[in-house]
Computed example of a mutant assay.
Amino acid sequence: MTDNANLDFAEQASRLHADILDSFDEELEMEFDDVRLDPVLKELGHAAPVDMDRRLYLRELLRLQSELVKLQEWVVEQKLKVVVLFEGRDAAGKGGAIKRITQRLNPRVCRVAALPAPSERERSQWYFQRYVAHLPAAGELVLFDRSWYNRAGVERVMGFCTDDEYEEFYRSVPEFERMLIRSGIILVKYWFSITDEEQYRRFLMRIHDPLKQWKLSPMDLESRRRWEDYTRAKEEMLSRTHTEQAPWWIVEADDKKRARLNCIQHLLMQIPYGQTKQPEVVLPARVYNADYLRSPVPQQMLVPQFF
């Protein structure tokens, strides 16, 4: 191998290493964001949470994410249909857990369904109809960031449904979920549980963080006021919809990092998966044409080098 070839190989290896580190930096950036407001919390008289060791957390997260990739490949190969529901109070950490699950997966295989408030037309349809449209086909995994259980929670507490609609939901949902399971769908339901004090602290962080204020809606603030109403609604929901075929799983979520790791580990245990055989990938040789000349990019089209 010539000296130039050695240099080229070393440069390629260096760039590959940098690309791998850059993919890890994405998680580090999110972790730094979690602690960014600790000084603000202290000024407000609230101690910053004592999280698990960051190095241990990142090591375990990357290990679990590598297993999620294997699970994804198994879902595709076996043509499985997987639905995972994420429910919980506002600021319970559902979105953060979903983000870590999907972070390294193929969005064509694993997608998130986060439905807005129903339109006038949707309110006139069968209640489950708009959720059915997002169910997976074979070889897909769908994560619902809130689900049909909106009726048992926010709609009940805020008066967005009638008593008859509420009771009809409870009559229908066990059979609806049994129908999903009979059709071959693997259904997993998580409730992210946080304490009164922890939700209050997280709301304070959002209020004083300009990067997160968009997460606070008038509905969120009202949910804070109606903590006990939501507690009663949650307890009724769990008691009436925790079935043998579709049980609820409670994720203790005051510690965000542990909640994410525990949820991912548990999810992996709910879907037995094996190692899929991956075809060997061989990068084809680049075709060079003697008559090809790359056109220069006009200077005025280039983004300035700010950094």
Rank of each mutant, 00 (worst) to 15 (best):
56 L>I: 04
293 L>Q: 12
100 R>A: 09
282 V>R: 13
108 R>I: 05
240 R>G: 03
203 F>D: 05
78 Q>N: 08
126 W>Q: 13
203 F>E: 01
289 N>L: 14
75 V>C: 05
31 E>R: 08
134 H>L: 08
298 P>C: 03
98 I>W: 08
128 F>T: 09
194 I>K: 00
218 P>Y: 03
181 I>L: 08
117 A>R: 15
155 E>M: 12
293 L>A: 13
106 N>S: 08
82 V>M: 00
177 E>R: 09
11 E>H: 13
262 N>E: 13
24 F>M: 12
188 V>F: 00
38 D>K: 10
296 P>W: 01
299 Q>E: 15
147 S>C: 09
292 Y>C: 04
229 D>Q: 12
67 E>K: 13
7 L>I: 06
307 F>V: 06
63 R>C: 11
302 L>Y: 02
77 E>F: 04
247 P>S: 00
8 D>I: 15
84 V>D: 03
155 E>R: 08
88 G>R: 10
202 R>K: 00
47 A>P: 08
174 P>N: 07
211 L>D: 10
256 K>P: 05
97 A>R: 01
90 D>V: 01
61 L>S: 07
167 E>V: 02
136 P>F: 03
82 V>A: 01
199 Q>E: 11
245 Q>W: 09
187 L>V: 15
16 L>D: 06
138 A>C: 01
144 F>Q: 01
187 L>M: 05
221 L>D: 04
255 D>I: 04
